[in-house]
Design a protein around this nucleic acid. Structure first.
Lengths: 351, 351
DNA sequence: TTGAAAGCGATACCAG
DNA sequence: CTGGTATCGCTTTCAA
């Protein structure tokens, strides 16, 4: 067994408080005594105050949690998530805090448990999907948190973008290029595992808020151009990965006869779609494709997409967590987005 | 204040142990009583057992730490690190553990403190550089750990590759293609911040073990071809990023007159080098370039490189941490590497 | 400056 | 199946 602070105190012949002070409050005892304590401690192999015990006593952990939906390993699958994490990490570091990555099981009960068991001082909620129950759980623990979902509750700290307007900008771009027969691609549109072409009577039927907002934004632009929701083809991918994006396209014949453009809800899906189109022998640009996020790969692939500042989003979120805004209204921060036009989108090609 | 377990016990009129059991050992009490306890708890706003207190009592945290050198945000800058993390995350998840990302300050004292303060059950040491003092500190805490450095101590759990042989394979490839005048690129070769062309009398002077091993591997192949260490140009980048890789090349005239090939110690640096060469108007392939790691971007850039299984490395490391091998000899796992030849390397072009 | 005492919030063992 | 008791390892008033 490792020796405890108590053992050190006994060995030196002082009280536990004094030993504790030797570590945490050097100014509370003579430098000489302190040195003597530290020396014997080292000699006894005492590793310093136990972090857990200290946290319990102080009521402060020194770590913030980042909540992810689904498999933790997926967190790194999407470069956009990595950008976000980078920002959070940067801020955490600045505040001398560690980062605890917390994966949320798919079932609400399990997710609740994960949140209840995380030893942290607060949460950055990156996860998408069923956030309601999760946020309630955080609130139940009385911990501060910051969301990035699309619909922040009144008074909650939040950082995000105008999802709907951002999506609309991409769709308007395609409308201007003359596209009218288009497909929309998102992951798990109905949150029921349906892959391929789900039946979505109205965009309001889409459960996942971010997906819903982006699809709604796409729809807005086409509605303004006289194309109704029912005329849009909705495609659902198994999950937000390049491979699934490709699979979703492959499963359907999205050729020029069918659609002239495809709007994806993420770059990862869009890149997958490009992979599939290319593999199916489709000529480049016979189908215009747009993405969302503007991850690094988007640039090299020439993908037209909506850029959102991932790293800034993470950094801002963490900063909001560490330094609670005094003014409540300053607790919700809207970040800008930009449409980045590259080679993956172009005018409709007549055959 | 949030109510505590004690308060719930009093409210229900049972002992604290019973309430505790209601949460952690459902089989230790009647379903009926349990329900009654859970109900009043919810009603009182009791968020369930405090994670920190529980950890203290149980002597188990439910999280493992990943140690990174330098800035935490850098951890995500290198796609290879992301691959590694993905693997660790996958394993941690499988073992119902969270992941604590711990950035290590550059100074040893600070790094020690970071290790001492991390509330975890064990460490995956990904950091490079001064590992000695850090590993001692971990050992001092009596926590299990797994290293990925190039020189594991006897009896330590370790997972890695044969750095030197792997590097050699890349160099041999270039030798076969006829290259004799070459440059070697690594980050912070002398660990003193020198950028550009450091004076390295012998490869054994390189402090960082991984860098040293890889450079030594490169040198081995050229030595076998009759090219001495002193004839090799060593380049040092400020850090392991694409931009710094580019900058290191730009600072020197690595044109065909000077060198016909460049061997980088990481893909990130190699890609940066390609950027710089291209930007300086160098014709493609006038200088052959090789990397190390085989990150996703390497494939799309056509970079010849040494592939090491990043995700497997992380997964294996974490598994080794969770399931200590009974046989000590099984505690050190050597992963295979492969030379992946792409378009960035070719025969020497005569001018 | 130093030390004694009182918890922080929970769990485990063991008797009933 | 239930409850008393003894910690887990440390920090923090407050008095001396």
């Amino acid at each position: 067994m490792k020796p405890t602070l108590r053992a050190v105190a006994e060995a030196v012949g002082v009280s536990r408080s004094t030993v504790s002070n030797a570590y945490g409050r050097p100014d509370q005892l003579s430098a000489e005594l302190r040195q003597r304590i530290l020396d014997t401690a080292r000699q006894m192999g005492y590793p310093g105050p136990d972090p857990t015990a200290r946290s319990l006593r102080r009521g402060f952990v020194g770590a913030i949690g980042v909540l992810f939906t689904s498999r933790l390993s997926y967190a790194f699958t999407d470069p956009f998530a990595v950008q976000f994490l980078t920002g959070v990490a940067e801020a955490a570091e600045r505040h001398d805090s560690n980062l605890l990555l917390v994966p949320l099981p798919a079932d609400l009960a399990g997710a609740r448990k994960a949140v209840e068991n995380a030893a942290v001082d607060g949460f950055c909620v990156y996860c998408a999907g069923e956030e309601e129950g999760i946020i309630d759980t955080i609130r139940g623990r009385g911990l501060p948190f910051v969301t990035t979902s699309s619909r922040p509750a009144e008074g909650d700290r939040w950082v995000g973008i105008d999802e709907r307007a951002a999506a609309r900008s991409a769709a308007e771009h395609l409308v201007e290029l003359g596209h009218r027969r288009v497909a929309l691609l998102a992951d798990d549109v109905l949150c029921d595992g349906t892959v391929g072409r789900p039946r979505v009577a109205a965009v309001t039927d889409v459960p996942h808020p971010t997906t819903r907002d982006r699809l709604a934004g796409f729809a807005d632009a086409f509605a303004a151009a006289g194309v109704a929701w029912s005329e849009l083809t909705v495609l659902s991918a198994a999950d937000n990965t390049r491979a699934s994006g490709a699979a979703a396209i492959r499963a359907l014949d999205v050729g020029p006869e069918r659609c002239t453009a495809l709007l994806a809800c993420s770059d990862v899906l869009a890149l997958g779609a490009l992979d599939a189109l290319r593999a199916s022998g489709e000529e480049d640009r016979s189908v215009s494709v747009t993405g969302f996020d503007d991850i690094p790969e988007a640039a090299s692939a020439g993908l037209t997409t909506v850029r959102q500042p991932g790293e800034a989003k993470g950094r801002t979120a963490a900063d909001l967590l560490f330094d609670p805004p005094t003014d409540v209204s300053a607790g919700q921060i809207l970040l800008p987005t930009t449409l980045v036009v590259r080679s993956s989108s172009g005018p409709v090609l007549r055959s």
